[in-house]
Write a protein that binds this DNA or RNA. Structure first.
Lengths: 243, 243
DNA sequence: CGCATTGTTGATCTATGTCAAGGACCGTGG
DNA sequence: CCACGGTCCTTGACATAGATCAACAATGCG
């Protein structure tokens, strides 16, 4: 279980980076982005590998190039809660500060830009553009985390799952059809869905069957759902579902 | 139900402001703080008054001078979830962006500095110090919101209440005694505790009695608790409780 | 072809939401 | 001084959503 596997790519990786127009990087000017990149190291991780947090950790700041990571926390009793899922273009780790409360793990294979925390902090002071972009991103993350808080606190599990399916359209493969339905490719296994929505894989499974029985979705395969009745799925959520 | 009641204080209110050393303002240099204050209007609200969010709203940015506010959201079915509680020195409203998803209400009587959103955004671009301070604050808020997400998702209600009591020491009146116990003055009514912890006032009441029966707390009055056994209260929370 | 992982289904039990009633406390007005 | 209404808190009875445990099916991999 080595720390991580460095790729052969050089540091001038922005040109090949598909998310240089997204998230944090997308809000930086080309010069600032290059100056950040000059201090970053590109690293890849396989699915389920720990990226930061937990025990002996270099506490770096990480910008996601590709793939998805989960910010989570474990109970001694084995319970896990996923607090956030980060997409390409988002930063991870700088919000962890001194105490390493959360573990951050790859969901899919990921590629990241790693920066040492200290260097990142210095860059932040020197580059107002970076600071502004980070601030904007933090607003977005806060908003997303509050939405999850709302989902967990105010909705029952059936509603949670429906909200999750609808929100997933924003960051998973979503193929809308002319008839208003669409096919969603779920990247999370049942266990992760459950730990995000604070329930169990068994319940997720049962609820999916129930949504199917109600004609709201079709289960094409364990990881592919057709959302047949989007207004029906959104019913009673009292929630702004972007997209 | 008028919008709000302006106080007689002038705009040079920083000198009289007890939280000018806390939160956002505490991280600004004196000059920057003065320049921000020059654009702010000091306003007071009684308890339970809406401060921003909801229907017709000026969508200002607000810095809390004194008192506490809650960021919350309602279901059509009447369920409410409190997503965050802000203390003096914290900003509120700038994270709301365009869509006004949350309502923000005074818990206690509050005094705030109001800034128009546009002016605030301009200040943010002109003053790197403000941007840096805001960025730091957003990190803190994100952290707190994630902690709430954790509490709601991973803990059962008994544990939620214990975590809440322990965390409350950081921002409510907390009088520690030499013997290791201490008296906590609860500023939230049962209803608010319930809506923060995603349960009901009835359950909160029962759980408090239960903690009392276990010798963990003493209920001096509905709003005053002696925390008798702090390690006992923290038991099984698997959580970093600051302080 | 095992073997491990992931997903599904069934049976059971309990924590807690809901409804209903009543108590404690406070301010107001007679 | 008391009666009144309001808010907040507490207690009891009851129903049920969903966690847990256990078994098994489906899938993928060496």
């Amino acid at each position: 279980m080595t720390a991580h596997l460095a790729t052969s790519e050089t540091e001038a990786g922005c040109t090949t980076c598909k998310s240089r127009k997204n998230g944090l990087c997308g809000r930086l000017s080309d010069q600032v982005r290059e100056r950040v990149a000059a201090r970053a190291q590109i690293v890849s991780y396989p699915a389920n590998r720990r990226i930061c947090g937990g025990e002996g950790d270099s506490s770096d700041v990480v910008i996601l190039r590709s793939g998805y990571v989960r910010t989570q926390h474990h109970t001694l009793s084995g319970r896990r809660q996923i607090m956030a899922i980060a997409r390409p273009g988002q930063t991870v780790g700088q919000e962890n500060e001194e105490r390493n409360e959360h573990e951050i793990e790859a969901i899919t294979p990921v590629s990241v830009c790693r920066l040492e925390r200290l260097e990142f902090e210095q860059l932040l002071s020197r580059e107002p553009g970076l600071c502004r972009a980070l601030c904007n991103q933090m607003v977005t993350r806060l908003d997303e985390t509050r939405r999850l808080t709302w989902i967990l606190g105010a909705l029952e599990s059936n509603q949670r799952l429906r909200a999750f399916l609808l929100l997933s359209r924003n960051w998973m493969d979503w193929a809308p059809q002319p008839d208003g339905t669409g096919v969603l490719t779920m990247i999370l296994p049942r266990r992760d869905i459950a730990d995000l929505l604070a329930t169990t894989p068994e319940t997720i499974s049962r609820l999916l069957r129930q949504l199917h029985a109600q004609g709201l979705i079709e289960i094409l395969s364990p990881r592919q759902f057709r959302l047949c009745d989007i207004p029906g799925l959104a019913d009673g959520l009292d929630m702004v579902i972007p997209l």
